[in-house]
């Protein structure tokens, strides 16, 4: 599948060639025009085809209008006008639209075909992502704000939401699908190359809709296996006195009421699971780099970084306590 995907991509780029300069502006970790998944590739190809068609049709129509109004504004034979309406208004559009509709319709079942086995449940919540990997042997591994995928496989995402409507969109891999309370939707992704991408919430979901992103990491199958087994493991114990102090404070301050760290008493399910927080690429749902300074800022002032966030800010903690908690969390590889 992966090989044919790459070929299709090359075909897509060849088709895109006339679009010239626009191409230079297409690469990016969150761009539908730099596809890294088979769905996105086919849609990008569709887009380039349509863009060329659009350019041609627009030029013809506006050319005709300018010709009639400015270039030769004198009276013409009505027969020409009649033919213009018959062919320009009806004939050609019906032909072009029929072809395009057929193109679009035949893509749909293909893009919605079933997955290969690996299933991931993603739940959009204000304003972060709960991720649960269902392995073939029936294990369920909880993570948050980052989706890891093996390249070349069709992975089925189950999408839900407990609060308001969200929409999961990884432009490089595929189109978006909404996460609607009371409903369960499905999205099948087939990444064709490894790399780091960015996904976002595409449906307006309240004050911090703009601050609800996530990292997408596409790796090879063996790397994925290794990562998954690491992710499934409990947190490593705190190795120094300062880290132990942080662990105790984490519990005393009540963080465990919302967050879980597997292997400790913290088992909250309201906020993201933090068991392997330090191994993630970003913090706070894709909006901060994962480094201790940012983590400290986040814990101290979550509400100014993400308006309306459901986590209280802990800037009132004594600096030493805050530092200890940050150090502990930053140790959770």
């Amino acid at each position: 599948m992966g090989g044919t995907g790459a070929e299709r991509r090359r075909a897509g780029w060849r088709l895109a060639w006339p679009a010239g300069l626009a191409l230079a502006a297409c690469s990016g970790s969150q761009s539908a025009l730099d596809p890294a998944g088979s769905e996105a590739e086919r849609v990008a190809q569709l887009f380039w085809v349509m863009l060329i068609g659009t350019g041609v049709i627009w030029s013809l129509v506006i050319g005709a209008a300018v010709y009639a109004a400015r270039v030769r504004p004198g009276p013409h034979d009505p027969a020409i006008s009649r033919r213009l309406i018959h062919w320009g208004g009806i004939g050609l559009p019906v032909l072009a639209l029929t072809a395009l509709l057929a193109y679009g319709l035949q893509l749909m079942p293909e893009l919605r075909a079933a997955g290969d086995g690996l299933k991931i449940e993603v739940s959009g919540e204000q304003w972060w992502w709960r991720v649960r990997y269902q392995t073939a042997d029936g294990r369920s591994i909880v993570s948050a704000n980052e989706i890891r995928l093996p390249a070349g496989e069709r992975v089925e995402l189950t999408l839900a939401s407990p609060d308001v409507i969200h929409s999961l969109w990884i432009p490089n891999l595929a189109g978006k699908v909404d996460m609607i309370p009371g409903r369960v939707n499905r999205l099948v992704l087939e990444p064709t190359r490894t790399g780091n991408f960015r996904g976002v919430c595409a449906e307006f979901c309240g004050a911090s809709h703009a601050l609800m992103a996530f990292a997408v990491v596409v790796v090879t199958r063996p790397e994925f296996e290794q990562w998954l087994s690491q992710e499934a493991a409990a947190a490593t114990g705190a190795s120094s006195a300062e880290l132990r102090r942080g662990a105790v404070l984490f519990e005393q301050v009540g963080c465990g009421g919302c967050h879980a760290i597997r292997g400790t008493a913290a088992a909250g399910t309201i906020g993201p699971d933090l068991t392997h927080l330090a191994s993630r690429r970003t913090l706070a749902a894709g909006i901060l780099p994962n480094e201790p300074a940012a983590l400290r800022r986040w814990i101290a002032a979550a509400d100014t970084i993400k308006p309306g966030v459901r986590m209280p800010s802990f800037g009132m903690l004594p600096a030493a306590d805050l530092d200890a908690i940050v150090a502990y969390l930053a140790s959770l590889e």
Binding site: R42, F47, G104, M108
Partner: peptide
Amino acid sequence: VMVALAPFDWQAHD
């Protein structure tokens, strides 16, 4: 017309 085609709209929507 582009966004009338569902597959393209999945990318373009919102």
